[in-house]
Amino acid sequence: MSLQPETFKSVVKLAAERVIASAPELTSLDQAIGDGDHGFNMKRGFEAVLGKLDAISEQPFDEALKTIGKTLVMTVGGASGPLYGSFFLAAGEALSHDKHLPEDIADVFGSGVNAVSARGRSHVGEKTMLDVLVPVLETLKNAAGHPDLIARVSTTAAEAVERTAPMRATKGRASFLGPRSVGHIDPGARSSCILVQAVCASLEGKQ
C-alpha cells in the first residue's frame, strides 16, 4: 500500500501545527542554553509551510519535500533553518532517486539525517537534534516492517530527547556554555521529537 497524497498532506499539517503550538516550550528551552528564538524560528518556518500546504500537496512527494526544505531554509534562519531545510531537501532528493514511501522510509530519512550531520559538521552525542534524529533512524532500520514500527519510533524519539539533558553540548549555541549546558534538554532535539511524534500520530490516525 503506497502513501496517499491526502495522508501526506495531513501528516505535514499535523506536524506543522504541533510544532507551531510548541513554540513557547521550544523558546523557553532555548532561553536556558541558547538565545531563546528556537520556538519563533520553527513557528515562522512551519507557518510558511502551512501557507503553501495546498500547493505542496499537489506536488509529487519528492518535490513536496524539497519545497518544504526550501521554505524552511528561506524562512527559519538561525541554525535550525539550514539544518531542517537540508534534511527535507536531502530527503526529497533521495525520493527522486528511485525510492518510494513508505517502504524506503529508512533510506529517505537517513538521507535527511546525513544532510543534517554534513551541514552541521556534527554527530550523535553533541547535544543537538541529531540525538533524536539518529536514534529514530536506528529504529526505522531495526524495526522495519514490524507492526509496532510507528509506536516504537514515537517512543524512541521521546526517550532520546530526555537523554540530551545530561549531555554537554559541543555544537550549536549551547556549546558556548561548556559545562553549564549540562542538565537542560536541547531545544532542537525537542523540536525533532515533536515533528517525529506528530508524523507518527497522524499516521496512526490519533490526532
Binding site: D35, G36, D37, N41, M74, G77, G81
Partner: peptide, 11 residues
C-alpha cells in the same frame, strides 16, 4: 539582517 538574534537566510 536576520530576525532578532537569528541568522539571516541564504536567499
Amino acid at each position: 539582517p536576520g530576525q532578532v538574534f537569528t541568522s539571516p537566510t541564504p536567499d
